[in-house]
Design a protein around this nucleic acid. Sequence first.
DNA 1: AGGCTAAACGGACCACGGTCCGTTTCTATT
DNA 2: AATAGAAACGGACCGTGGTCCGTTTAGCCT
Lengths: 194, 194
Amino acid sequence: MTPATAAERSDAARNRERLLAAAREIIQEGGAQALTMDRLAERAGVGKGTVFRRFGSRAGLLLTLLDDSEAAFQERFLFGPPPLGPGAPGLERLVAFGAARIAYVVEFGDLVLAAENASRSSRFEVPAAALWHRHIEVLLREEGFTSDPWLMAGSLGAALDPGRLLNLVRVHGITADRLAASWQDLVTRVVKGA
Amino acid sequence: MTPATAAERSDAARNRERLLAAAREIIQEGGAQALTMDRLAERAGVGKGTVFRRFGSRAGLLLTLLDDSEAAFQERFLFGPPPLGPGAPGLERLVAFGAARIAYVVEFGDLVLAAENASRSSRFEVPAAALWHRHIEVLLREEGFTSDPWLMAGSLGAALDPGRLLNLVRVHGITADRLAASWQDLVTRVVKGA
DNA sequence: AGGCTAAACGGACCACGGTCCGTTTCTATT
DNA sequence: AATAGAAACGGACCGTGGTCCGTTTAGCCT
């Protein structure tokens, strides 16, 4: 029962585990900024080429590290209980989505930020981003928003940009509650507006 | 009549001119991406240390290169004729501001983008950004927006993020007109909304 | 078991942004 | 004009992300 996609060689699997474990160690000790590709290779006892073969780039590595929490987050707003998941009206889900996203960014801030600005120009290819975008768009449509919902979804999503949110929280000391309130105000006005 | 701030030494001034000229040449020939600090130093016939002494960093250099057009842009929305400048109602000025910003980003896209992601994490310290932020905030207040106008100004500003706009224009082929229309829709709803 | 091939490996190498510090050059002062 | 000291200069040097390619190894096939 070999899967359609060629199976992973055992040494490759072992090294992937080693690398992820080492990466988590390094981050725990010194933050995301301490995670350099050279150090990681050394710590995991593999060659540098292997690190890049596995993850493609530093951005790819960070994305992989975030993968679990990302998936959990997606699970919640796609299939979880309302108001975040399906079952509540679109506007309520939008409001909940913003609040959840803000909480998420605050929790995993370091990593998210590092992943964002590690990707060589444009965080717009991150697959997860496309999903949020689409999610917002769908909710807008559900609320009867008809004038270019795709672009509007992007504009709203930009308000939840991790770099921005973290800057507000860390540098300006804005609380998550205040951010969530402003987000609620924003989406409410957009949905009910003019 | 020596100015309060120590005058610039003549060799320094000469080198600054040489560097800016060389930088513009390089960009004209190969785009912003071709502008490396080593190449610039070589082309201008100065040492690498001199480049960094003058501009501090690559981001600083790019900002300097943008300085003229930046200043002109600011001039227009601060003191120019309505609807962009003072004299028109706040909402109209907001709409015009978005359109002008979109046009600006499309025109100087390369440079703006390069400057943005050259700055070591967080384009939020660019002084010009603070000015737009404040401008939007003032216009919101003028329109009677009272619930956390500062944060709302930031959220709206995020919709005009150069990286985002350029991605939409270049990768997705969205026209400037469509972007401007969506911006108008957004700010109208926010100002008039619920 | 032995061998074959594709996959995985490793580390030297590159380009780039940025720092450092010994050397040179400008300019104000006498 | 000579001089002193601050400012500017230059380029070797470093850490980093990323590439390349010759070498090793897993795992299937006979």
